[in-house]
Each structure stands twice: as structure tokens, then as C-alpha cells.
Design a protein around this nucleic acid. Structure first.
Lengths: 330, 330
DNA sequence: GTTCCGCAATACTTCTGACGTATCGTCGGG
DNA sequence: CCCGACGATACGTCAGAAGTATTGCGGAAC
């Protein structure tokens, strides 16, 4: 059975007349009779009653036509859906991210992306940077946002670009001696108990901090750790110690804590966005376009990196490639 | 676009290999390549990535295949649905009936029918006998159950068969003088206020009663009327008068009323089932089979009448006609 | 770097089957 | 009783789907 049979049966049901139905289909009447007869033979039931007053579907015909309409609707829907998917207007984007990225720049990026592609389903999963990289390599994610360059087996198949830079600040309870001070020196932190992200979650930050203080008798040895910024601030508020985190953390203003800059200013490892270099998904390309337009403050690095991977960016999205030229188009 | 294209695309997605997909389809590889290329040209998007490790659907291809699967499922569903509809296993049966038919024999018939054809939707509408006949003629019903032979324009296109007989009984309040008596004479009713079905709802019963009492000073002239049996019994229970109705009415036993036979026994107009003689619906045929098997007590009249209309009964249902022979089957 | 192999694409032929023209059979209406 | 309308049948034609043979390309092995 072919789609043609469905189209012919629907036309016949609509016109209730072989001749007119054939005309509306742009064919002669005998072929229509033949095709309907072939359809009835294949279905095994008479689908139309030919009376002198017109051609009417039987009970079987009515049931058949209902389904036939839906089948043809699915077929035309398949074409439009394919087009939408190719333009990145539908589908899904699975994204892993570290919690601190939610302070910035993710809110703006995600909001704009979801507005420009309302039919793309965003699967967002908060996870540590190494987990994100692993899931990305395993194909369980399409995009990962974390800190530090991806490492490990398979990391060479990833493209990574910076999407945000920030520097280290400290957070203390409002009853802490540092409270009210605009800044605190790195050297002053050596004698404090620190509250930081754990090494297995954020190795880049962790080793960065370790290098700041030098190896011997590091304050990190007596540090408390917390997986997310809210907890770091919470522990600091309890007076457990001095919390260290990115300056975006200031967005989480609370009455019982005090934020102060660390001097000299310490730049943290950049927030990085990674994706598989081989990923040709139009949804990813569309997402990268939004990222590119919204993370300019990081400088031209992002554009640079993305420019080296036109496969994931220009193809399938740029208007220049609007003419779809699959095989055989000459 | 034809169904063939969908089948080929699905086979290719399944085998991820042109050669094996073609083999599974029973064709050679080059035609498969050609058909996939033609499909991609028509959709306007590349649907498969041909890599050295295999053939994989693109994002557009994945979206397309989703819909293609559904389209093909609808097509095969169309065939099975047509078969089911032709065997009367699906569809709907719109039935009008008078309330008293619900006492018997409709419960048994409807129950058995719904059990034997669970996917047939029963549209049941309680209505007076004349309304049922009119709706049947107008094509708004498939079956009507009422009392008396159909009359009026279009009634000659209907087939009517008796499905139940009953006789007149009386119902009175338990405080009424008749209470406790096994029977009451017709002549004793002449001086009572009667509660009966109104003439526009049940003309057959109404005129029948009128003929029982003779024309002059009929007790019907001071009768109360009610459209359904429950109300007739209710009015009788209130002491409004003596309710008259079919003996099936005894099924509605209540503590505050008393039923007694009317002597001599008066046979009411039969319960009749009507349908359009031209109706070839397999659902109707299946329903009539159930009716025939469940209303034997009426005698052979039902079989007689139905036998004269093989169009609606044997065709499409009898196992002898199991071989579907639409046009061209030789 | 070169060769080889697997696979999809291309070239070209074959043949099925969908379509067109002409005609017939049948059923109602005048 | 004839006529007209309509669907079915008969048969020739041609588009296009499939088959065979071959080429082109990319990755892996040597």
C-alpha cells in the first residue's frame, strides 16, 4: 500500500464521484478506479459503495479514511519536522553545568535561547566540572559548562571556549573581624579556616588555590568544603570560616554575611563551555550562536575558538547555507 | 512522497548500512541509494550522515523517522481498523428507546452486545416512540425501540420487528382500596383517576387504552400523565390515582405501592425494534444477531422479519460471506 | 606512503505498473 | 423504450523503480 492509495481514497470520499475525484487528482477516471480496486483488494474489504446517487464510504471505508487522514498528516508533518529539526528549532539540548554558572552568564543565555527556540527542550543537570566532561564524552550531554580545561581520555574530541571570567572573593559572617572591610589580603587568609569547593568537584579551582598559598602548611589543609556556593556562604555565615568563591557570588546577598575582595586580585580559572567537536546538531549550533552573542565580555577568545569549528557553527545555521543541497543537488 | 520512502528510510536507520538495509527490503543497494536521495531532495534536508563507520540519521533524520514510524503505523492501523469495522467490531450504534424497554429486554441485549463488541460505542438516548422513529428516518439513529408500528413519511423505509410483549397491570398506593388484591377488573378502573403515559409520547398505548374503555365518559379524560414509568408509579404512590403500565413495571418494587393484574388480561402493543432497511452497517447486523438470540420468547416473528432483510443481517456477518470479495476478486 | 578493502554513488539497462484513450455494461430517468 | 451518466474493462504507452556493472572515496593495514 502506498500513500497514493490513501490520497486517492480521500479524494474519492470528498467528491463522492470517480470522475470528479480523478479530475481533482489530475488523472483520468479509469486509473482511479483501478487504484481504488487495488486498495480494496489489499485491505480485503469493500471501502466504497457505488450507488447511482454517488459513491459513499462503507463502515470499513469510514474507519479506513479516518486513519488515512492521520497517516498523511504524519507524513507531511515528517517533512516540516525534519525542516524544523534541521534549523535547530526543535529537539533537545542536554546541558551539564556547575552551580556557580547559574549566577552568570547562564541565566541570560538560557533565557534568550529558550525564547528564540521555544520548542527545544532543555535538559539541565547541575554537576561538577569533571562529571560534565565525562558525560559529554560519553554522549550523555551535548554541552557542559565548568571550570578549567577538560582532561582525560576523549577530551581531545571536545571543543572548549571561555564564556566567563571572574576573580576570587571572600565571604565571612557579619560578626567576623573581616566584616565591613572592602578587601582582605591573601596573606591574611593563611591563618583562617577556609571554606571552598571540594577538589573532586572543582579540581581546577582547588589546585589553583593550592598554588596560591604555596605547598607548606596551606590553610587548605584545614578547609571545610561544600559542593555549591550557597553552602559555602551558609558555612561562612555560621562562622565556620572564610568562604572563597567567584565574585558572581555577590549576587547572593544575605544580611548575615559580608563579601570582600581578595588582594591582590586573583583571577579564577575561566568558566568554560565544552561540546563535542564532531557534534553537528543544529540545536547545538543555534545554542552556540546565542552564547556567542551573549558572552562578548570574555573577549574574542570565544569567537576564535568557535571559528575554528565551522562544522558546529556556520553549517546548518548560517543563512548562506539556506539552500539545502543534499546528495544529488546540482 | 510515497510510503515506500518511509519504509526505506526506516530500514536504513535500523541497519545503518545501505547494503544490508537493501537486502532486508529485498532490493539491491543502488535503488535504495536512489530512493533515499530522492527523499532527501523532496524533504529538502539531509536525513542521513554517511560515515565510514556506518549510516546515521541527522537531527532532521531523527525527527523525520519519528513521524515516519507513526505514519506507517497509521497505515497498517487503517487496514486492521477497516477489517474490524467491516466485521462490526468497532464503530458506534446510536439507539433511541422508550424508558420501559430498559426494564426488559434491553438490559440483557445491551449487556451481551457490549461484551461481544467491547469497542463499539453505544450512544443511548431515551425518547418517546414517535421521536425515535423520526430520528431513525432522519438518520440520527441506527436503531429505535418503541411501541407500535412506525407511521408517517419515510416509515416505509424502515424494518420493524417485535422484541417483547407484555400486558397491562395497575399500580396503586399501598393505602388504596385495591392494595392487597391480586387483580382488578377493567370495569373497576372506569371510576378511578388514571395515571398513564401521555398520548404524544406513546400514541400506540394511549389509543389502545382509549379503545379499551369505549369512547363515552372514558376515565382517560380525567387521567394524569407522566412520561416515564418511575413517575407513573410515583404519582400512584402519592394517591393521585391508579397507574397503568406494562407488567415489566413490577421490577420496580417499592414498599409504598401495590401492583395488581388487570382482568381480563390486556395485551399491550408489542415492544418493537426498528432500523433502516437500507442500512448495511456491520455494527447494526451484529446488534441484530444479538437481539435475535436474546428475544426468542417473542416467537418466530422476529426471525421472520429479519429473514426478509438479508441485506442487513446475513451479509457482512455470516461466516459464509467470510471471503471478502470486493471488485475484481476472481 | 602505499595499497587494499568496504561501501556508497553513478551509469546504464530492464521491466513493472501507473496512466491515458477507447469502449463496454448497467442503472435510472425521461 | 431509449438515452444519458457513470463506473468498469481492455489495451497501448511511458515514467520511474529496480537490477547489473562500475566508479569513487575514505579509512585501515602493511
Amino acid at each position: 500500500m502506498e500513500a497514493r492509495h490513501l490520497r486517492y481514497a480521500l479524494a474519492l470520499a470528498e467528491h463522492q464521484h470517480f470522475g470528479r475525484a480523478a479530475a481533482s487528482l489530475g488523472i483520468a477516471q479509469p486509473p482511479l478506479s483501478a487504484q481504488i480496486a487495488a486498495l480494496e483488494r489489499e485491505v480485503g474489504e469493500r471501502l466504497f459503495d457505488r450507488t447511482s446517487r454517488g459513491v459513499f464510504p462503507t463502515a470499513a471505508g469510514t474507519a479506513f479514511l479516518d486513519r488515512a487522514r492521520r497517516a498523511l498528516a504524519e507524513m507531511s508533518g515528517a517533512v516540516t519536522d525534519a525542516g524544523r529539526a534541521a534549523r535547530g528549532e526543535s529537539g533537545r539540548l542536554r546541558m551539564g553545568f556547575i552551580g556557580s554558572a547559574l549566577l552568570a552568564p547562564l541565566p541570560g543565555v538560557l533565557g534568550r535561547f529558550q525564547r528564540s527556540r521555544p520548542d527545544v527542550r532543555l535538559d539541565l543537570r547541575e554537576m561538577g566540572s569533571p562529571d560534565g566532561v565525562a558525560a559529554l564524552i560519553a554522549g550523555e550531554l551535548d554541552v557542559a559548562v565548568g571550570r578549567g580545561a577538560p582532561r582525560g581520555a576523549g577530551a581531545e574530541g571536545l571543543v572548549t571556549a571561555p564564556i566567563g571570567a571572574d576573580h576570587l572573593i571572600a565571604v565571612v559572617a557579619s560578626t567576623h573581624p573581616f566584616a565591613g572591610r572592602a578587601e582582605v589580603g591573601l596573606d591574611q587568609l593563611v591563618t583562617e579556616t577556609l571554606v571552598v569547593a571540594p577538589g573532586d568537584q572543582e579540581p581546577a579551582v582547588s589546585s589553583w588555590l593550592r598554588s596560591l598559598f604555596g605547598s607548606a602548611s596551606s590553610p587548605l589543609d584545614r578547609a571545610a568544603s561544600a559542593r555549591d556556593i550557597h553552602t559555602i556562604i551558609g558555612l561562612a555565615a555560621c562562622g565556620v570560616g572564610v568562604g572563597l568563591g567567584p565574585d558572581r557570588m555577590r549576587l547572593l546577598r544575605r544580611d548575615d554575611v559580608w563579601f570582600c575582595d581578595v588582594t591582590p586580585q586573583v583571577r579564577l580559572p575561566d568558566l568554560q563551555l565544552s561540546f563535542r567537536a564532531a557534534d553537528r546538531s543544529p540545536v547545538l549550533a543555534a545554542f552556540l550562536d546565542v552564547v556567542r552573542a551573549n558572552c562578548r565580555e570574555v573577549g574574542s577568545r570565544l569567537d576564535e575558538v568557535l571559528a575554528r569549528h565551522p562544522a558546529a557553527c556556520s553549517e546548518g545555521v548560517s543563512p548562506a547555507a539556506a539552500v539545502p543541497s543534499p546528495a544529488g543537488a546540482r
